[in-house]
Design a protein around this nucleic acid. Structure first.
Length: 215
DNA sequence: CAGCAGATTGACT
DNA sequence: GTCAATCTGCTGC
């Protein structure tokens, strides 16, 4: 049962990563550094739903054609990408899925990182309920799946990751550099040459990675 | 297990 | 009107 896990005392790392984590490096470095960290969303009754980040993709607007902020596009949807690093960017796609992103860099530089997969660690029973009877391996092995499992929707767009609605904590151990793989991003074939940039990072061999081998 | 089509709606041209 | 940073179920091997 996961219940025993949830009864443990709060971890000493149970506080949001500092602003510096999101503003103190380039978006590609931060994407790598996110692997192994813990994404947390509070649930009812003081419980938490959380998972270890095992896959992430960097989007480097305005030059990156795969980015929503390509060419400096600034619309109601993309406005959040121009916020200060450490802000959540949540948008809706394909008529039914939400996507959770981490904004990086200083304000007005629209860099962001799509969180593509998690390894479930807290609130797993809640995830099973929300995901409607899929196998455990399917709980959070994709950007839309993890949003459903964690209860992330548009109401969390522009949320401060140093706040209390959604945040990221230091993981138990950093992902060993040698275990980090990189490849091309998923679902951005429309971006021409930019679709070939190897800006997707994942933990090699982790069973929750959405697609172990790039297309 | 790979490959493919359908779902479903907001954002933007 | 077109298309999207996806997921699921079904087909066929």
């Amino acid at each position: 049962m996961t219940r025993r896990n949830e009864m443990l005392a709060p971890r000493s790392e149970a506080r949001p990563l500092p602003r510096e984590f999101y503003t103190g490096a380039g978006v590609l470095t931060i994407a790598r550094n996110l692997l192994g960290q813990r994404l947390v969303v509070p649930a009812e009754g003081g419980t938490r739903v959380a998972g270890i980040i095992v896959e992430a993709e960097a989007y480097r607007g305005p030059r990156d054609r795969a980015s929503h902020a390509y060419g400096g596009r600034r619309t109601r949807r993309t406005e959040t990408m121009y916020a200060i690093g450490g802000t959540a960017y949540v948008y809706f796609v394909y008529g039914m899925h939400y996507q959770f992103n981490v904004v990086t860099n200083v304000a007005d530089i629209p860099h962001a990182i799509l969180i593509r997969a998690l390894e479930p660690v807290e609130g797993i029973d809640i995830m099973r309920w929300r995901r409607g009877g899929v196998t455990d391996r399917e709980l959070t092995s994709g950007p839309g799946k993890l949003c459903q499992a964690l209860g992330i929707d548009r109401s969390l767009d522009a949320a401060d990751l140093l706040g209390s609605r959604v945040w990221i904590e230091a993981g138990d151990r950093p992902a060993p550099r040698v275990q980090i793989a990189r490849g091309t991003r998923i679902g951005v074939d429309y971006a021409g040459a930019w679709a070939l940039m190897p800006w997707r990072f994942w933990i090699r061999g982790n069973p929750f990675v959405s697609r172990p081998v790039p297309a």
